[in-house]
Amino acid sequence: MVPLNYYIILSAILFTIGALGVLIRRNPLIIFMSIELMLNAANLALIAFSSAFNELDGQIFVFFVIAVAAAEVAVGLALIVQIFKSRHNINVDEINQLKG
C-alpha cells in the first residue's frame, strides 16, 4: 500500500529534473528528451490518480499524451534535422532569432 502522495512527489521530482534539462542543456536533442521526461512525469501522476480513484479516464489521457508525444517528436526531430542542415550546428544558444 503506497500512499498516493509518494507517486505525486516522484512525479514532481521527475518533472523538475526534466524542466532543469530544458533550462540548462544546449543540445536540442537533450532538451527534447527532457520534454519527454516531463511528459512522462505527468503521465505517472495521471496513472497514479487513475488508480487511486479507480477511474480509467486517466489512462485514456495518458494514451493520448503518448500519441501527441510521438507526433511532437516526429515534427521536432524533422525541424532539428533541417536546422542542422542549414547551419551545421544545433547549439540552441546560437539560435536567437526568436525576438521582435
Partner: peptide, 14 residues
C-alpha cells in the same frame, strides 16, 4: 529579457 533564446523564455515560464 527578450534576447531570442528559447531557453531564457522557458526560464520565464518556469
Amino acid at each position: 529579457i527578450q534576447n531570442g533564446f528559447v531557453r531564457s523564455y522557458a526560464l520565464s515560464v518556469f
